Simulated assay, not measured.
Amino acid sequence: MSLLSKGFEVEMYTGTPDGKIIGLSDKIVQALDGFVREPDSRNVEYTTAPFCGYDRLLCALLKPRKTLRTYLQTLGDYTLIPGSTMSLGGSDRFYRSDPNNPYHSYIEQTYGTSVVTASIHINVGISDPEILMQACRLVRVEAPLYLALSASSPFIDGQVTGDHSTRWQMFPKTPQNVPLFDSHSHFIRWTEEQLAAKTMRNVRHLWSSVRPNGDRRPYNLNRLELRICDLVVDPLALLAITALLEARIMQMMANPELDPLQQSRLSTNDLAADLVALTDENETAAARNSLDAELRHWQDGRKITARDWIDEIYAQVYPIAQKRGFSCFLSPLKKILRQGSTAQQWLKLHRQGMELSAIIQQDIQNIARQERDLEYALCQPALIA
C-alpha cells in the first residue's frame, strides 16, 4: 500500500506582535496567489496541494507562510497570531472581508463571531467512495482524539474560558444532527434531503467534525476532510497528527472489519444513533479538557482518557508507519502526549503567573523562529528536487 495523498486548509489570524488581531485578508488575497478570504477579514486561509510524502508536505506548509510574513511586513509591523479564538479581544463585532457577498451576510447574521475562528482541516485522499465512507465512520468516532491533540483555544477576549478548545465548544456544528453514513448512497440521499429542507444552504454547509469531500459533492468524492482540529501552528506537530490519521486509515484498509457499525460491542437498539451520541459527548469532553478528558470508547463503552486512548492507537499503528517509511513523522506525537496540548501548555504558564498577553506574544515569536529554522534546514530547493 502506497502512502495516501494529504493536504491542508490552514486558517490563521493576522495581527501585531503584541497579539492584537487585525483584519488584512482583503489586501492579502489581492496581492498573493493561493490565499482566500474568510467572511471576517481577521483570518485568512491557504490550501496546500496534495502530496503523499511528508517532506514535501512540510515545505508546502511553510512556504506560503514565509510569503505571507514577507508581505505582511510591507503593510506594517504585522505577523501571524497563534490560537483558534480571539484570545486577547475582538469577539464583540464582525469585520466583513467582502461586504457585497450574500453568503457572508448569511454567515454574519446567522452565526456572528462564533465562526471567526482559526483551524486546520486535514484532507486525506481516498478514491473508493465506500472505503471513504467507512473511513469517515471510523474517524468520526475518533475525532475527539484529534481535537484533544490540537486544542489551542483556552482564552477569548483576555479571559480564561474553562475550555481547552473554546473554538469547538462554540462553533455552530451544522446541521445539528449528522448521522454515521452507512454507504455513499446514504450520504447522497441525506445531503439532498438537507438541501431541500434548507438545513444546509449549499453542499459546503456541512460543518461537522469530519466529512466526505470531492469536486462534486455529494456525488463525486475523493477525500476525507477532518475539520475538528484547532489551529496547530507547529508544523512538526501537525504532521504527527496527520501521520496518526493516515496510519489509522491504513490500518482500517488492511482490516476491513475495523468499522464502528460492525465492530462496536455496545448493547443498543440503534447502534448508529448511539455511536453519534457517544461521540458528541466525547467531543464536548475533549473540548473541555483535551488530553486529560475522560472519554467513552466506541468499541465497548469503557471509560478511558484521551491520552491513554491515543497511546493505544499509537502502539497499533506505529508498525504500519514504520513499514511505510513515515514513522519519524509520527514520533513527535509522544512529545505532545508528554507536554500536553497547546491549550494545556498555555494554561500551565497562566497558573504559574504569566499574563495572557505575554503567553500569546511569546508563542508569536516562537512560531516565527521555528518556521525560519525549519524552512532553512529542510526546504531548500536541492532537498526537494
Rank of each mutant, 00 (worst) to 15 (best):
M1V: 12
S2C: 00
L3T: 11
M12Y: 00
T16W: 01
L24F: 01
A31Y: 01
F35N: 00
V36N: 04
P39A: 06
D40E: 05
V44K: 01
T48W: 04
K66N: 06
T67K: 09
T74L: 04
L75A: 07
T79I: 04
G83C: 07
M86W: 04
L88Y: 03
D92W: 04
D92T: 12
Y106F: 14
I107Y: 03
T113I: 12
A118S: 15
A118W: 03
S119I: 12
V139Q: 05
R140E: 14
R140S: 15
P144K: 00
G162K: 06
D163H: 09
P175V: 07
S183Q: 04
H184K: 02
R189P: 00
R189D: 14
N202Q: 05
S208R: 04
P212Y: 07
G214C: 12
Y219H: 14
R223Y: 15
R223I: 11
L224M: 13
D230F: 09
L239Q: 05
A240T: 05
I241G: 05
R248I: 13
L261E: 03
L266M: 10
L266Q: 06
T268S: 15
L275Q: 12
V276F: 10
E281K: 10
E283W: 03
A286N: 06
A286Y: 07
A286V: 11
R288I: 14
D292K: 14
A293G: 13
L295I: 11
A306T: 13
W309H: 13
E312C: 11
V317Y: 04
P319R: 09
P319A: 05
P319M: 00
K335C: 07
R338A: 12
Q339V: 04
G340C: 06
S341V: 09
S341A: 10
E355S: 13
I359C: 13
Q365D: 08
E371P: 03
D373V: 10
A382L: 02
